[in-house]
Amino acid sequence: MLTINNLYKSFGSKKAVDNVTIHIAPGEVYGFIGHNGAGKTTTLKSVVGILQFDEGEILIDGMSIKDKPIECKKEIAYIPDNPDLYDFMTGIKYLNFIADVYGVSEKDRYERIHKYADMFELTSDLAQPIAAYSHGMKQKLAIISAWIHNPKLIIMDEPFVGLDPKAAHILKGMMREMCDDGGAIFFSTHVLEVAEKLCDKIAIIKSGKIIKCGTMDEVKGDDSLEEVFLELVDVDKEVKIDD
């Protein structure tokens, strides 16, 4: 579903992403963890076409995001770390706009908008301007808009930030359900417990490089994900101290 091969991206002299390779198959929930500034958001933004990368290849359902950006974008949805949506629209207008852009039929959009809005208890607020929404409400709206066109792949940057426990629980269920139906999810998170319980595969990124990836069992073995993550991150630190 998603193939990232030897991805490089620099900002000036700083290498933000350094030879990243990740393969995500249909049905997989793929977690992406790392320090702040490790290169998670840069990788995700490159995948969805916001950032132009320097080298490498990104294929979505076999198509290159560089060569066929529109076709690729039709297959995916993206939820950024900070849901800056169109403040001048109401919630329902925004969802309708997104549905129009993806060409969702009248029947499907009606069903999906109301199904997910009811699940997140956002229905009664849909007539309000987005400017009046709290961060959590905007996040819920961004999630509904991501699911509205039934994408094959959803890319999410810290999707649980700002959500109340109930909404976070619902989102986890939606993620699992989508992958069970053959879709795929690639998301970054700092909440290691969530990643451990939810993900089929995981990649740990540090200073732009993937330092470990694979199935959850391959990555953590008998330890907890937190222990493995901290150990991997600290190895380098110890070396530097020794040096």
Partner: peptide, 21 residues
């Protein structure tokens, strides 16, 4: 606060949606 009532949603073509925005 205006409470949203479920209703028929009008569809637009791609350019219509972008222009409307």
């Amino acid at each position: 606060k205006t409470k949203y009532q479920k209703k028929h949603l009008k569809t637009k073509g791609l350019f219509g949606a972008v222009f409307g925005k």
